[in-house]
């Protein structure tokens, strides 16, 4: 095993720690901004995994869309909706925790045990794909889905504006 492989392995372990720590921070932080920061760390960790999975392009997209756009939107929502006093989440109620822990444990344990017991041996890895191939696929093979998702984004954008902007006129009437 050459040094590069060893370094890659160490970085991989760091990414695992980073991703899990970010996810835990995102769901347990009492202050919402801290939760958003944890989420951003998780996004960056997942972007690192995409590099290991042979797609630097998707890694860049992950950083652009998730770590860039969605994080900013969430920070915006946090800052506009909460006064500083409200940013600190109030005490977690026992009822919520009683429901949340079993739901989390069941989904996590069932899926992890399924993965472990499935007996997935070492598998062959497919080669890397270039951006050119993905672009051609998007415009030929998946052109319908591509157009539909652009339509979906347009509808979501217009819908968000209607939901937020329409309220004032109705209040004024």
């Amino acid at each position: 095993m050459s040094e590069y492989r060893i370094i890659a392995e160490v970085v991989f372990y760091l990414l695992i720690v980073l991703t899990v720590a970010g996810a835990v921070l995102a769901v347990t932080a009492r202050i919402l901004i801290h939760a958003v920061v944890g989420l951003a760390v998780t996004f960056l960790g997942v972007a690192g995994f995409y590099v290991y999975l042979g797609s630097p392009f998707l890694s860049m997209m992950q950083i652009l869309i998730y770590a860039g756009a969605i994080t900013i939107v969430l920070v915006f929502g946090t800052m506009i909706g909460y006064t500083p006093r409200q940013i600190v989440e109030t005490k977690i109620r026992d009822k919520n925790l009683r429901l949340a822990l079993p739901a989390c444990l069941v989904s996590g344990v069932v899926l992890c045990s399924a993965v472990v017991t499935a007996g997935l041996g070492t598998m062959r890895q497919s080669g890397d794909t270039g951006i050119a191939d993905i672009g051609k696929r998007l415009l030929y093979e998946f052109s319908l889905a591509f157009e539909l998702i652009s339509l979906l984004l347009l509808i979501a954008m217009v819908g968000a504006m209607v939901i937020v902007g329409g309220q004032e006129e109705r209040d004024a009437e």
Partner: peptide, 10 residues
């Protein structure tokens, strides 16, 4: 699976 479990918990 861990990400999903954390998400469900949150």
């Amino acid at each position: 699976a861990l990400l999903l479990a954390a998400g469900v918990y949150g």
